[in-house]
Amino acid sequence: MTILLALVAAILFGCGSWLLMQRRLTRIIVGIGLLGHGANLLLITSGRSGRAPIIDGGGGYADPLPQALALTAVVITFGVTAFLLALGFRSWQLTQDDRVEDDVEDRIIAARREREAPSGDVDDDPENTFGPDDEPAENPT
């Protein structure tokens, strides 16, 4: 049973990590969800499996602590994932796109280098461009 659970956790971790590498926020959120499930499953597995919950009936009982920990972790993951979804929705509202964009300052510095040595390779996708400093540019759409 432990092997099976460990295997499932491993698969969840693998899929979650792969999704995290994506540029689209929806995939990242799903990836975070999978990673969280994997970690919680691992937390449950850290107790002994295959025993009755808390009744002390001769054969001992399962360790309640990992279950309590997993419960706490599940609640926290749930809340934060909900926030991340809201953030993704806000991002989509603002840009009609759920790609995670490059750092603004990094692009400015890269652009500066571009001006000085015009052979550089700079991402000048207009959808990714905000105005300088704090002021947002007009919505591209």
Binding site: L20, I32, L35, G36, G38, A39, N40, L42, L43, T45, S46, G47, L65, P66, L69, A73, I76, T77, V80, L84
Partner: peptide
């Protein structure tokens, strides 16, 4: 979040 997930993982293994 990734850091927190790793933290839970470490906790699980430690426990």
């Amino acid at each position: 979040l990734v850091a927190s997930t790793l933290f839970i993982t470490v906790l699980a293994l430690l426990y």
